[in-house]
Design a protein around this nucleic acid. Sequence first.
RNA 1: GCUGGCGUAGCUCAGUCGGCAGAGCGCGGGAUUUGUAAUCCCGUGGGCGCGGGUUCAAGUCCCGCCGCCAGCUCCA
Length: 641
Amino acid sequence: MKVKDKVKITIDGKEVEVEKGTPLGKVFELAGIKDALGGKLGDRIIDLQTPIREGGQIKPIYRNDPESLEIMRHSLAHIMAQALKELYGTTKVHLGVGPTTEEGFYYDVEVEGHRITEEDLPKIEEKMREIIKRDYPILRKELEREEAIKLFEELKEKYKVEIIKDISPDDVISVYQQGDFIDLCRGPHLPSTGKAGAFKLTSISGAYWRGKADQPQLTRIYGMAFWTDKELRQRLRFYEEAKKRDHRKLGRELEFFLIDENVGAGLVLWLPRGSIYRKVLEDYWKEEHLKRGYQFVYTPHVGKSKLWEISGHLECYRPNMFPPMEMEGEEYYVKPMNCPFHIAIYKSKVRSYKELPIKLAELGTVYRYEMSGVLHGLMRVRGFTQDDAHIICTPEQVNDVIRETLDLALTVLKDFGFEDFKIYISTRPEDAIGSDEQWEVSEQALRKAVEDLGYSYEIDEGGGAFYGPKIDVKIKDAIGRLWQCSTIQFDFNLPERFDMTYVGPDNQKHRPYMIHRALLGSIERFTGILLEHYAGLLPVWLSPTQVRIVPIADRHVEYGRKVLKALEELGIRADIDERDERMNAKIREAELMKIPFVLVVGDREAEGGTVAVRSKKEGNLGTMSVEEFISFIKEKIERKE
RNA sequence: GCUGGCGUAGCUCAGUCGGCAGAGCGCGGGAUUUGUAAUCCCGUGGGCGCGGGUUCAAGUCCCGCCGCCAGCUCCA
């Protein structure tokens, strides 16, 4: 045997030399590695049957490694496909693709002569368990292209044949077989079906073949899978928890907002309770911006088509805009963005470098046409209010401006109770406009700002818009979900298009930098996130009603009103439940409305000038004097608890 | 927009094979005057999403539209 047919492999610091093409399982055996389910070769996860053709580092994957799940889920996708074929006929089921997901797997399939519904899922699950019990060995085979095409043509796997034809000639075509089920697959897979973990088929939906709308639509069957039942149940509980927190449900129960089909899909009606919360949020937002030298502007909801032509929106953004309306021979569009208006304000006079940076802010309501299928409560709507601002500055100011903006974003998000952030910087894409210098200066400013503030970040290389780089901030909510809120974005396009200038110290005209930014994103979406984060129990400072007074009997109403007045005079949002109901019913009502504090007043309180305080979070706190309660709640409000 | 599922009272939901539209909560009235999550009684409330069709008869079957939900795709 020639030396060049051997490959050198390093595993856990140990070197072994094996014949080229030796399966990984055998390699592990030689290296004395037991119980591994696969290995990681570079970024690729491979299974025990994969032949090793090149040398290098291989990291064994054991059941405890997160990568092992990928192997197992992949095999479950095959087990599901096999189950479908056994149930509906080998040549009737046409398989699409069956990858793993973050928590499980799915398979896109087409079943001739049967429409798969959710009701079929238990039946399919049962068949899968049967196949797992049969503990078929899962065997890898490599085939020649022609051989593979012939095989899958015989199996009536039209989609698989299509995939094979697209596989590059340099790549190996592999299939995996378990029992009499055989599937085109790169792997990795478990050694046998019996090794699969706990799973549940969760849902079903349509998905286009190759994700393209002009292709046939297949049925996508989703499964969730973990090694143990416990982990699976935990994940299912997470969904139940998420469901309980659903802002659409909370929004109705807490009377925050309404979406009325007679008004229109994706158009939000803010109810009084939601509106008072929103006012508090907006007041806070404005204060924070005033402190940092922002100037507020108000701009109209519609503008002439010319404006959108110059901005380029009609060219690039039209599918997302509401159609035009005609007036006096002129076309007007409802605004999908505020930028052109802010630019018009900037341009309304000659600007000197001495007045830069100029920061124009607006809670600007914009309208975007979103496809009906993507609308979702407050999270995805057709009319929403951006907490928008445009900062126009000189190149020298870019660093300070970005740092200050990011700092403001994080300060605001922290004040709303978010502590966990993920920061992403997106850099220059292929087909970008703007000079090298502009990109260099801007990307540098973004990095420096995050570093100065002591945060880590991820770079999305080439992920910026064609007109500039950006920072996005995602927040982690109480159940670990990430939501994108803040975005700080350079724009090299609009200053050019609108010919924005400022006069520099050299008395010449210069092109300013423009930064577009939103901190919360949109008020609607942010409200949805807040409601879900807090499961409806907002911090006291944001609660529509901060205090409810509950008189025990009619004769206590008078005293209750006195307490109410004392609170109201200090700007505390309070009300009194004077209904002819029992105290328990009133307390229950307050609990359901998630009112942070209930003050029970009866004979004892009326006599002593006190209140019996019940906190939504902590239950009965006992008796306090009215003054004590006031300073107690005032402090919580100030500290944004 | 596409695929699948769904649409019955303000809310949550029953309604069988096509045969007189129901419950609880809510709301109104009355009784009751209460100590930390639902007091009792009486009453009120529905062109069954909208529009067509089949039928002696449609909440139920068929077609079209609107909306909602889960995805695909896309995004604040």
